[in-house]
Design a protein around this nucleic acid. Structure first.
Length: 577
RNA sequence: GCGGCGGUCGUCUAGCCUGGUCUAGGACGCCGGCCUUCCACGCCGGAGAUCCCGGGUUCGAAUCCCGGCCGCCGCACCA
């Protein structure tokens, strides 16, 4: 039985089904709705939970030796996002040309056209300058609109004081970086260490579109995988093989077709710049495949440097083909290097370095920064303490660099101190290891997008009936129980089976209304993989039929074996290979 | 954010141009009853619509006008 190819309006059918049967719909509909927010209904919630758990299976449970999971708050104090760079990269004063619609950074526009330094100016001040100077659009000479801020972070206040600014996190990562030391210690201080987090994040998108694809608030599933770039190889025996990849260099030359390349080869040839990034892409490939997406409908597109986030040295988006919008991003794979930990070290003053033992201890000549506190005390006075605190996190190289500049005084981390108060000393030391800042490879998924992708992929129409061919493992309802007819003797048996299967923790649907055909159709429409029917034969020999959603074939099993048989069919039976 | 198109029971839709006959019609779905021994059967009954929201024009607005919200498409934007 071949599924009819559903044409271009398939997405509409999916959305329609989602609303009718309770997968998802726009939030706050009774008030007209708000763009970028969606509710998950009963079935959507169940489906999402199953998808999330499958993700957990791939990224956490199959990697329990190297990945652990934590949970951190949705709200972050300002300093965290200042440290991470999100405040700088997410809050821009923007001005738009009223004539041609081009958008500019207001501060850059002013600096380039007037020579004024306006860094740190507020919106009103920038707006005033633009108006006073009569600045026009540099492209078309058109009139400019008002200066506005352009901020993708949702802002709030923590506690009763408006000065305590907080933001809804735009990614789960910053909570992980902030907690890195604690987790590292509780995981007995070993690298590599993956820290996973599943949670809600919010991004105040300018104009969210594409329904469930681009949300202002969604569930992110990510792993920050901390490792030594020179450390051991990933466990290639678990996940490896070919990836479909479209490298940036190829895109630059107009290439649109991904190449197929073995992950290890891709790393050796420098196509993928970090081994763990490549490894997690393999895991992502297999995870998404188990959601029902074929290899051919999925590939990894490398982002151009200007497309990347500020923290990323290389990014691949995992794209999946859906009916209405073509290729959409379901996951991002970023090589964040040691950027985030370094930034948090700098802002918090905490040492996030990790001790990396040498194979054998060695005696080396080390350089140390030595300061003359007597001299400094006279110059800096009470701020000496804070200077010494800051100095702990300044590298020897940075001090050297400062010493290279000319003048009586030198600048270190914003402090001006006499050159004579600082010198570099060399001494011999026995060292058994070194301290490194771990590097991070980050796979990151949007859960709601996956819900949409699964439904879009699973939706099919056969003989005017809708069948949702959701992979059995993630189907929100696993089994439907029907009495063939609404007769007391059949109903009694069917209800008993329903109660038994429910007690065994299967998600079960019981339905006795309408004809048997209608009930099969209703179950097909929400993707129930198996339907168990109690008929008159059941009353004589205690057997029931199990009907397969996709083939409509029925098999007959005894009620006693039903549970085991269903587990087997649903591929839920656990075993070691 | 700009431009185009659109918004009527849960869903799809009739009605809008040409204002009143609309207490807004139908189909599907849903609920109840009858019937029925396996794939949306049939019959009977029922519930279900702020006609997206607000304002205006008019004796009278689902219908005409304005503003807003939401959606789709294009542009712009997009960690």
């Amino acid at each position: 039985m071949s599924a009819k190819e559903v044409p271009g309006d398939k997405y509409d059918s999916v959305v329609d089904l989602a609303k009718r049967r309770g997968f998802f719909w726009p939030s706050y509909e009774i008030y007209g709705g708000v763009a970028g927010f969606y509710d998950l209904g009963p079935l959507g919630t169940a489906l999402k939970i199953n998808i999330v758990n499958l993700w957990r299976e791939y990224f956490v449970l199959k990697h329990q030796d190297i990945v652990t999971e934590i949970e951190t708050p949705v709200i972050a104090p300002e300093v965290v996002l200042r440290a991470s760079g999100h405040l700088d990269h997410f809050t821009d004063p923007i001005i738009e040309c009223l004539n041609c619609g081009r958008k500019y950074r207001a501060d850059h526009l002013i600096e380039e056209n007037t020579g004024l330094k306006v860094e740190g100016y507020g919106v009103e001040e920038l707006d005033r300058i633009v108006k006073e100077r009569g600045l026009r659009c540099p492209q078309c000479g058109g009139l400019l609109g008002d200066v506005r801020t352009f901020n993708l972070l949702f802002k709030t206040t923590i506690g009763p004081y408006s000065s305590d600014v907080g933001y809804l996190r735009p990614e789960a990562a910053q909570g992980i970086f902030s907690a890195f030391r604690r987790v590292f210690i509780s995981m007995r201080e070993k690298l590599p260490l993956g820290i996973a987090q599943i949670g809600r994040v919010a991004r105040n998108e300018i104009s969210p579109r594409q329904g469930m694809v681009r949300l202002r608030e969604f569930t992110i599933m990510e792993v920050e995988f901390f490792h030594d770039p020179e450390g051991d190889d990933p466990p290639w025996d678990r996940f490896s093989g070919k990836l479909r990849v479209l490298p940036a260099e190829l895109r630059q030359r107009g290439g649109e077709k991904p190449i197929e390349i073995d992950v290890i080869e891709a790393i050796e040839e420098g196509v993928i710049k970090n081994r763990w990034l490549g490894y997690w892409m393999c895991v992502a490939r297999d995870f998404v495949r188990e959601l029902g997406i074929d290899y051919g409908d999925m590939f990894f597109e490398e982002k151009m440097p200007y497309e990347r986030a500020h923290y990323s040295a290389q990014t691949f988006d995992q794209l999946v083909r859906v009916s209405r919008w073509g290729w959409i991003e379901v996951s991002g794979h970023a090589y964040r290097t040691d950027y985030d930990l370094r930034k948090h070290m700098e802002f918090s003053g905490e040492d996030m370095k990790v001790f990396k033992p040498f194979k054998e201890p060695k005696v080396v000549e080390v350089e140390k920064v030595v300061v003359d506190k007597a001299v400094l005390g006279r110059v800096l006075g009470p701020s000496l303490t804070s200077f010494l605190e800051v100095l702990k996190n300044v590298s020897v190289d940075d001090v050297k660099k400062a010493l290279e500049s000319s003048g009586e005084t030198i600048a270190i981390s914003g402090f001006r101190i006499p050159r004579s108060a600082v010198r570099i000393m060399k001494e011999l030391e026995k060292v058994s290891g070194t301290k490194i800042v771990p590097h991070v490879a980050e796979p990151s998924f949007g859960a709601e997008r996956l819900v949409l992708v699964v439904l879009d992929k699973a939706y099919s129409e056969e003989e005017n009936r809708v069948v949702l061919k959701i992979p059995k493992k993630i189907a929100p309802v696993k089994v439907a129980i029907f009495p063939l007819l609404e007769r007391e003797e059949l109903v009694r048996v069917a209800r008993k089976i329903y109660a038994d299967l429910t007690a065994l923790r299967l998600t079960v649907l019981y339905d006795e209304s309408g004809s048997i055909g209608r009930r099969y159709a209703r179950a097909d429409e929400i993707g129930v993989p198996y339907a168990v029917t109690v008929d008159y034969q059941t009353l004589t020999d205690s057997t029931v039929t199990i009907r397969d959603r996709d083939t409509r074939q029925q098999i007959r099993v005894s009620v006693r074996d039903l549970y085991e048989k269903l587990l087997e069919l649903l591929d839920l039976k656990l075993r070691v290979s």
